[in-house]
């Protein structure tokens, strides 16, 4: 049975802060930070936006784009590291907001930045096993970075939703492959407002080891090579890592260009790779092959091999494209940003 993407949708809040603005507050050298991270600005949630509202907006965009009958949904999984409730599933609120039937299974996932792709894999399994007709997999975050911490330069807000099924596919997911280890490169303890991380340790033993292992694992498994793909997208904690890992694996800058949204968006954690994939689908044509590898600290990577079908032409324009979501930003200063991020208490 072929399993894949029936429809997709993304959502990005309108607010942005430029990295210069953050650097000015902390006395950092903006030029060297922007040059090092290859990120110019990042998205900021509205005062009334969180991982749930972003998940709902992305899910509604996916449903409307594909004109999907929500009564077919048999599963809803939301991946995030910023679920507003510690106990009370985001996915139940999403289910009500998209008017899904109560006869479905739902749960929240957490795996740093790859919880959303884990949700896609779970839906693939349920669809492939014939347990459900279609499933909704979401990656959504309003990620946190402590004031003055390196993460503050990139931790952004956004999400993407994918409807996974076995018929009427916009893109076929040929296979997926994961690589998981116990690597403490980044974590947040219960009740703590901001995550901790291992600085440079997040790079080689974290991001690069897991992304390359999952990516090569998948290509070995299905017998493909980088040149077989038209597009590639890797998790984007900054602009540098995905470009370096792409080069290391043998992908060209041209292959990753369409999905590299991080310079204008920042790291949307669970939404990162999935928004990148949405940006690629926004411009891909029938027969295009896409290679995607997500990374979540802790640590693990999920790789996917995807082929676009002719249905893309039918649904592409029926929802907001990532490029449209990135347009008309409202820029804010650090004080307003701090208010939006709940860093100011009254």
């Amino acid at each position: 049975m072929k399993v894949g993407i029936v429809s997709y949708g993304a959502y990005v809040p309108r607010y942005r802060i430029k990295l210069e603005e953050i650097a000015a507050v902390w006395g950092d050298d903006a030029k060297s930070i922007i040059g090092g991270l290859k990120v110019n600005e990042k998205s900021v949630p509205g005062l009334d936006e969180d991982a749930i509202t972003i998940a709902v907006e992305a899910a509604r965009n996916a449903i409307n784009r594909g004109n999907v009958d929500v009564s077919r949904l048999g599963a809803i999984y939301c991946g995030s590291e910023s679920h507003p409730y510690a106990v009370k599933p985001t996915s139940t609120i999403v289910a009500a907001a998209v008017e899904a039937e109560p006869n479905l299974t739902a749960a929240d996932f957490e795996f740093a930045c790859k919880a959303g792709t884990a949700a896609i894999q779970t839906c693939m399994g349920l669809v492939g096993a014939g347990m459900i007709d279609i499933g909704l997999a979401i990656g959504s975050d309003v990620s946190q970075g402590a004031p003055g911490d390196a993460l503050e330069y990139t931790a952004a807000a956004g999400g993407a939703a994918y409807i996974i099924g076995s018929s009427d596919l916009t893109a076929v997911i040929e296979d997926t492959f994961s690589f998981t280890t116990d690597t403490p490169d980044f974590w947040r303890r219960e009740g703590m407002p901001y995550p901790e991380h291992g600085g440079r340790f997040t790079g080689e033993p974290g991001y690069f080891k897991h992304v390359t292992s999952a990516a090569t694992g998948l290509m070995d498994k299905i017998g493909t090579k980088p040149s077989d793909y038209d597009y590639a997208v890797f998790h984007q904690p900054n602009g540098k890592f995905p470009q370096n890992v792409a080069r290391k694996l043998g992908f060209t800058p041209e292959q990753i260009k369409a999905g590299l949204v991080v310079p204008r968006l920042g790291n949307t954690y669970s939404g990162s790779c999935m928004i990148g994939l949405a940006a690629i689908l926004d411009q891909a044509v029938e027969g295009d092959r896409i290679f995607m590898t997500a990374f979540g600290s802790g640590a693990g990577s999920d790789a996917f091999s995807i082929t676009v079908t002719d249905k893309i032409e039918e649904i592409r324009d029926a929802g907001p494209k990532v490029e449209e979501l990135l347009q008309n930003p409202i820029y804010m200063d650090y004080a307003t940003y701090a208010k939006h991020k709940g860093k100011i208490k009254v």
Binding site: D50, I52, V56, P84
Partner: peptide, 20 residues
């Protein structure tokens, strides 16, 4: 219309979502 947070009961209370 958009889906947004309308308010919350308190820091430990429930969060109200709805339409803006």
């Amino acid at each position: 219309s958009v889906f947004r947070k309308l308010g919350e009961e308190s820091e430990k209370g429930m969060i109200y979502y709805g339409t803006k």
